[in-house]
């Protein structure tokens, strides 16, 4: 393997990780400002112009927080759990394409880390192992609220993963490929959100549930479970859970944009390749606003309703959508 290729991969990975971490920091500010606007408040605006230094201030505050480990907690797992939670949120970015091919210093560089023929399956695999951090955190804290939060989240994520996986099948069938780059290229003129509107809606709902966002933030329902699985965490360990949740939000928005909204492409217009990441970023920001809007608007689901909705409504509809898409594809040819 040539050394230049390895250096290229390292640089691209570093860019993705940096994007994830700064994206997390500024998403918290974006969310607080947007929520404040919706609730006719001003929001954090003291640190720097428009509050742009607020995430830095929050970070410094969290670093100097006292880190507590409960007396009878399982220490090893308690320390590992935040790391296990962050890892899937970061590695899921490996297959998401953020642009076409650009030429930098006479070298053709693809603006994605990996274009594998099992890309979509990789997304489901990473989503499947993303639950462990939360479950282990809940168990190792030796706290009944934390344990209940962990159990709830494992049940919720397993239930909604099925609908999430089935919603992927529509775009796969239309594009005839599991590679995310192929799926984006297949949406040259028509976004899959049009013909696959049912799959798109199912993906958005199941995606919110998968990352424990409101109105599916059952594992951390404050009124019932204090803070759920991270009740015993403080300082940087808590910050890691926070980080995982927000990076997952960005990742879900990026996946939604890639599978259903044309990814780094605009319909009918051939953009220069270096504008691809900008197009994708704009789509991500719009989708993120949708998530914040949902949080500001909807009350939390009751737990049994959440399960019933996932299994009795979302899953059958997703299955019917797969069946319908397959039949129409066969009829049209």
């Amino acid at each position: 393997m040539e050394p230049a290729l390895i250096i290229e991969w390292v640089i691209k990975s570093a860019i993705l990780l940096l994007f994830g971490v700064t994206g997390f920091a500024y998403l918290t500010l974006y969310e607080r400002r947007a929520l404040a606007r919706i609730q006719v408040r001003i929001g954090p605006n003291r640190a720097g112009p428009f509050g742009i230094l607020q995430p830095v201030a929050d970070g410094i505050k969290l670093i100097f927080n006292e880190e507590l480990i409960p007396a009878r907690a399982d220490k090893l797992m308690f320390v590992l759990a935040p790391i296990i939670t962050v890892l899937p949120a970061l590695i899921i970015w490996a297959v998401i394409p953020w642009g076409g091919q650009v030429v930098i210093a006479g070298r053709e560089i693809n603006l994605y880390l990996a274009d594998v023929n099992v890309g979509v399956l990789y997304l489901t695999a990473v989503a499947a192992i993303a639950v462990y951090g939360i479950v282990i955190a809940g168990w190792s804290s030796n706290n009944k609220y934390a344990l209940l939060g962990g159990l709830r989240s494992s049940a919720q994520m397993v239930s909604y993963e099925l609908a999430l996986g089935l919603s992927f099948i529509g775009p796969i069938m239309l594009a005839g490929s599991m590679s995310l780059v192929d799926i984006v290229e297949a949406q040259k003129n028509v976004w899959f959100a049009g013909p696959q509107i049912i799959a798109f809606i199912i993906f958005l709902i199941a995606g919110l549930a998968e990352i424990n966002r409101s109105p599916f933030d059952m594992p951390e329902a404050e009124q019932e479970l204090t803070a759920g699985y991270h009740a015993e965490y403080s300082g940087m360990k808590f910050a890691l859970f926070f980080m995982a949740e927000y990076i997952k939000m960005i990742a879900i928005a990026a996946i939604a944009a890639t599978l259903f909204l044309g990814g780094y492409r605009l319909p009918f217009i051939e953009l220069p390749a270096f504008l691809g990441p900008v197009v994708l970023l704009v789509k991500i920001i719009i989708l993120l606003f949708g998530m914040i809007w949902v949080r500001a608007t909807f009350p939390r689901f009751r737990y049994d309703r959440l399960m019933a909705f996932g299994w009795k409504i979302l899953l059958p509809v997703a299955l019917a959508n797969v069946f319908l898409t397959a039949v129409i594809l066969v009829l049209i040819g």
Binding site: L121, A125, A128, I129, S154, M157, V158
Partner: peptide, 20 residues
């Protein structure tokens, strides 16, 4: 990838769930 999604993901989550 199927091995990770099915065994390491779905099935082991259920195992952990029941144990806890």
């Amino acid at each position: 990838v199927s091995q990770v999604a099915v065994y390491a993901g779905a099935i082991m989550v259920l195992f952990l769930f029941v144990i806890m």
